[in-house]
Design a protein around this nucleic acid. Structure first.
Lengths: 194, 194
DNA sequence: CGATTCTTTGAAAACAGTCAATCTGTGTGG
DNA sequence: CCACACAGATTGACTGTTTTCAAAGAATCG
């Protein structure tokens, strides 16, 4: 179960973590199983966990004034999911996080994460790189959402995350791109007819 | 000159940095002056510097296939500007960064930043918080650009960054919000007439 | 001033969204 | 095993918002 996390840490830090150091990490994270459609975070409550997805698929979304869902994050096994703002600042979240597939998570609360950062230099390094990558990815998504047409957004997703297409329903991908399911369907038809 | 940076570090880390520690930081950063319209980064080259804006105003933007500019970042004194992806991974950037006003920057290259993170725990902490804040802000911007109408985007900017309005021309604010200057002008008229 | 840059305005076109109906596939219960 | 229900995807017609193009009007700076 913890293997995937271990491999992940090795990969992003470009190092091989020692058994002694990994013990701290194992101790910090609990295994938690969530069933499809089950919530990990509800709008209005504080995001208490930083969660590593060992298996499954999760999504994060907000609901606007008109009641429409807007997916901000789609995540598969080997990714982290959390509302960083809520988690680090211990403030109520404006997002919901739920499971798109039955999933297994490794979760740790803020106290454990902070302790872990002191105990394990490798974990600290990983957390840092994680934030950097998250920043960089967020930058790209801003660019895509601001400057791309519906078709360009679709193509961007095909190129950037082809694996999403067999894991998430098309309507979720649409929401992730900021499109309606209808527009998504039409764009898809367009693109495939070439 | 370095005072603003020092105050900034104290503020974000919720601590008071010692003189001994700040010496390392002073040594790592060079003062660099850029005139209005002068470039700090050109698309295609590697972003070599992490820059703290001591005074002035800067912007970061990309140019799409149709030749349209899309501003991804607007930054004033007391903010950092850099293409993190390019800087940390030492890869060519797809962005341009130039000065909107004559500006004074404190710049450090990757080697110096990495060294500094080893020398100063406070700086490491700051860098970490910086990335977190950047992530959180990016998240908000994605949400805004995906789920807000032109008018809502305008109001969001008024509320989130009122100071931008006397520092950047309206057309840049439009680009920052993913709108055309014309739409921005019309929305502004709408909003002001209430 | 004169020149450049930025903003506003108008009219038309394009793009994506909305609403509603139909279609498709999958899984469940009789 | 079939029939039905349900969720997701597609299609069509229409609407509305934003963009585009073009021109005129401010504002700013040397």
């Amino acid at each position: 179960m913890y293997d995937i996390l271990r491999k992940y840490i090795d990969r992003v830090t470009s190092a091989v973590i020692t058994d002694e150091e990994f013990v701290y990490i194992e101790q910090a994270f609990d295994v938690r199983k969530v069933k499809r459609k089950q919530f990990l975070l509800h709008e209005g409550s504080v995001c208490r966990y930083m969660s590593f997805i060992a298996s499954g698929a999760m999504r994060q979304y907000s609901i606007d004034n008109s009641g429409n869902e807007h997916i901000t994050t789609l995540a598969l096994e080997g990714w982290w999911i959390s509302d960083r703002g809520s988690f680090y600042n211990v403030t109520p979240s404006r997002y919901n996080i739920d499971a798109v597939e039955d999933s297994t998570l490794l979760v740790a609360n803020l106290e454990r994460i902070n302790l872990l950062k002191e105990q394990s230099l490798t974990f600290l390094k990983m957390a840092h790189i994680l934030d950097q990558n998250h920043s960089i990815a967020a930058q790209k998504r801003i660019e895509a959402s601001v400057s791309y047409s519906a078709e360009e957004k679709y193509n961007y997703l095909v190129q950037a995350h082809p694996e999403f297409f067999n894991r998430f329903p098309q309507s979720m991908l649409a929401s992730y791109l900021g499109l309606t399911p209808e527009t998504m369907s039409r764009v898809r038809k367009q693109v495939l007819s070439r």
